Amino acid sequence: MLRHLGDHGFSSQAARTAALRQLVLQAPAPVIARSLSFHDTTTARIAAEAGKSWIHYAPGDHTG
């Protein structure tokens, strides 16, 4: 797949970053980091670049 994208002028690194940026807009960076085996600082940096901090996110069970 990466070879085909490259053949058409798409950068695999740019595609990964764009996908990660979209994910951190939808969920907190630490959750994405643990789910996809990224380092917390990587996802936090990309979230900050995307303008999403999740600063008010409180992890844990809030059902009860």
Rank of each mutant, 00 (worst) to 15 (best):
S11V: 05
T42W: 03
V24H: 02
A18K: 06
A47I: 10
F38Y: 15
T41L: 07
G6R: 15
A14I: 05
A58H: 12
S12D: 12
A47N: 01
A58I: 11
E49P: 07
H62K: 10
W54I: 07
A47F: 05
A48S: 12
D7N: 14
V31C: 10
A18N: 02
A18F: 00
A27I: 06
S53K: 08
A44R: 15
I32R: 00
S35K: 14
M1C: 01
H39A: 15
S35T: 13
E49I: 08
L23W: 06
T17V: 02
G51T: 12
R16K: 03
L5I: 10
I46S: 07
W54S: 08
R34S: 09
L2Q: 13
L23N: 01
A50Y: 04
A47L: 04
P30G: 03
I46L: 15
A58C: 07
R16Y: 01
A15P: 04
L20Y: 03
Q22N: 03
L5Q: 13
P30C: 08
L5K: 11
A15T: 03
R45N: 14
G64V: 14
T43D: 00
S53W: 01
A33V: 10
K52Y: 01
L2W: 13
W54H: 07
A19E: 13
S11W: 04
A58P: 01
A44I: 03
L23D: 00
L20N: 04
L2T: 14
D40K: 02
S11L: 06
P59N: 05
S35V: 05
S11D: 15
A18I: 02
T17F: 12
L25S: 05
A27D: 00
A44S: 08
Q22D: 12
H8C: 05
S35C: 07
A18Q: 04
A44L: 12
L5C: 06
A27E: 03
Q26F: 00
A48C: 05
D7W: 05
F38P: 05
I32M: 01
R34P: 03
D40L: 09
S12F: 14
L36A: 06
A15D: 08
S35Q: 14
T17H: 14
R21V: 06
A29L: 02
P28R: 00
P59S: 08
I46G: 07
T41W: 11
F10M: 00
A50V: 07
L36V: 04
T63P: 04
L2H: 05
A33T: 10
R3G: 00
A47K: 10
H56E: 15
V24S: 02
G9M: 02
H56G: 14
A29C: 01
R16S: 06
L36Q: 08
L36K: 10
